[in-house]
Design a protein around this nucleic acid. Structure first.
Lengths: 204, 204
DNA sequence: GTCTATAACCTGATAGAC
DNA sequence: GTCTATCAGGTTATAGAC
């Protein structure tokens, strides 16, 4: 049996570079990332990175579009399902989101910070008008609480779910949460947030 | 009357540089900021920046320490006051925080993203042990809900309050919120969040 | 496709005149 | 204190050999 090449083990060179780019970009951000770091992590030479992706910026844009979809793309299918009732939707969104974030803890901070000043990017990826209206989630909220803009509840759900991941580096640095306890805390929140949100919706 | 110099109008040169640094660093982050941009914004020469602050990093650290205190420093006095009862504390924290954030909308995203991987910084500034225990806010929460870790409620308050500011660039880019409507929305939340939090604390 | 060597550029920092 | 000019180092991107 012939000895396997790196490519056979880890996938195509192009994909290896992209995977390295995902890791380095999300950890350090665009400006602080050096293409040399990506090349080294991918186990290839710097010239090869440019051979495949032409430039740092083009490589970044590919990664960024993926990450944006990863962060926002999951919301729509759940929120717009007509057959699921409001309470169930809240549970599903929170549970799905938390699972995804536990697998990608630095995703939100990366996307949201790299998004400052780059307005064009998002609008290409997401069908905006459809999100705001026609999402049954919004209608369901309006039926229950016509006196409060549905966007408030969406922000509350996202805030309570996503914020711990954004603040984790700070909370960890300050010693409020040891990194080991974090996942336990987040798992507790998976059950608690839906309870809280339902109470919020009823609150007068 | 003699013509006024720039310094007389805008404050000392050192302070003008620092103010320019605050703006540029918070908008673009450390890595993406060029000292030339700061110098230009301050209306001085690049050499002068180094004359006053020795290096980009030293200037950044000064700004960063300020911003950390601005973001976290306000919490303790309110949360640890023994004479204020829980409900009132919640109202005060939310109202004070929102006012501060409206005046510094990109503060949270800046601090939280620059904090990745820099653990030392925070611990110097904040007396951590005192925060976690001995804060009457924590005790008050434990009395009402001994079955839930107080940190959950702290995260909920901060999440609901801070998250809109972190996500605003994204929400704006995607067209969910026009920038003009943002402040109105935030002002609504100033009254709503305390109501929601109180409902959350009662929820079973 | 992959490498080495290098070009072209940019950025932080300093030297030295005023 | 403030400026101009420049250095030293690092970074992206490409040329050219294999």
């Amino acid at each position: 049996m012939a000895k396997k090449t790196k490519t056979e083990i880890d996938g195509s060179t192009e994909e290896r570079i992209k995977e390295a780019a995902r890791i380095v970009f999300t950890q350090k951000g665009y400006a602080a990332t050096r293409t040399r770091d990506i090349a080294e992590k991918a186990g290839i030479n710097l010239a090869l990175l440019n051979y495949y992706f032409r430039s740092k910026e083009k490589l970044f844009n590919q990664v960024m579009l993926e990450k944006i979809q990863q962060l926002f793309g999951m919301l729509l299918p759940v929120l717009s399902d007509e057959t699921t009732k409001l309470e169930k939707k809240i549970e599903m969104v929170v549970a799905n989101y938390i699972d995804m974030l536990l697998a990608n803890p630095d995703l939100p901070l990366f996307v949201l910070s790299e998004l400052r000043g780059q307005k064009e990017e998002l609008q290409k990826v997401l069908p905006i008008e459809k999100i705001i209206q026609n999402i049954s989630f919004i209608k369901q909220l309006q039926e229950k609480r016509p006196d409060i803009q549905p966007i408030h509840f969406l922000m509350n759900i996202l805030g309570m779910t996503v914020f711990p991941f954004i603040a984790m580096p700070a909370f960890d640095a300050v010693g409020i949460i040891k990194k080991n306890d974090f996942e336990k805390l987040i798992q507790e929140r998976k059950a608690l947030i839906p309870i809280w949100v339902k109470a919020m919706i009823k609150a007068k």
